[in-house]
Amino acid sequence: MPSTWWLRNPRYFLYMLREVTSIFVYLYALAFVVQFLLLADRGLFDAFRVLFTSSVFRAFTGVVLVMAVVHAITWWSLNAGVFRIRLRGRTLPPAALFAGGMLAWIVVSGLVYLLVFRGF
C-alpha cells in the first residue's frame, strides 16, 4: 500500500485526523502534568507559568481545544455503536449513546475547569 493510502477515501482521512488530534491532546496533557510536577520547585513553576500564559501557548491551547473537540466527536461517533447498554429490555441506539457520551464529556470538562481554575 502506498504511504498516501489515507487520502484515498474521506473516511480514511477522518480516521487519520482522529489519530493526529490525539497527539495534540497528549501534548497538552503532558504540559499539564509537567506543571504539577514543577509545583515542588517554586522558581521553576513560575518560569513555566510565564510560558503557559504566553500568547504562543494560548494559541496552542486554542488549537488543542479544536483538536480535542474533533477527537471527542469522531471518537464518540465511532464508539457509540460499540457499547451495548440495555435499558428496560431494549438496547440503547448509538445516537442516544453518542449524545450521552458528548454530554458526559462536556460535564466532566466543566467540572475539571471548575476544580482546576476556580478551585471550587
Binding site: 477515501n9 473516511r11 480514511y12 480516521y15 489519530e19 465511532l78 455503536g81 460499540v82
Partner: peptide, 19 residues
C-alpha cells in the same frame, strides 16, 4: 485493529465487524 471502521461501512450485511 486500530478501529478505522471502514469494514463496518462497506459491509453489505451490516455485520459491524469493527464494533
Amino acid at each position: 485493529c486500530t478501529y478505522v471502521g471502514e469494514c463496518s461501512v462497506v459491509c453489505p450485511k451490516n455485520v459491524d465487524p469493527a464494533g
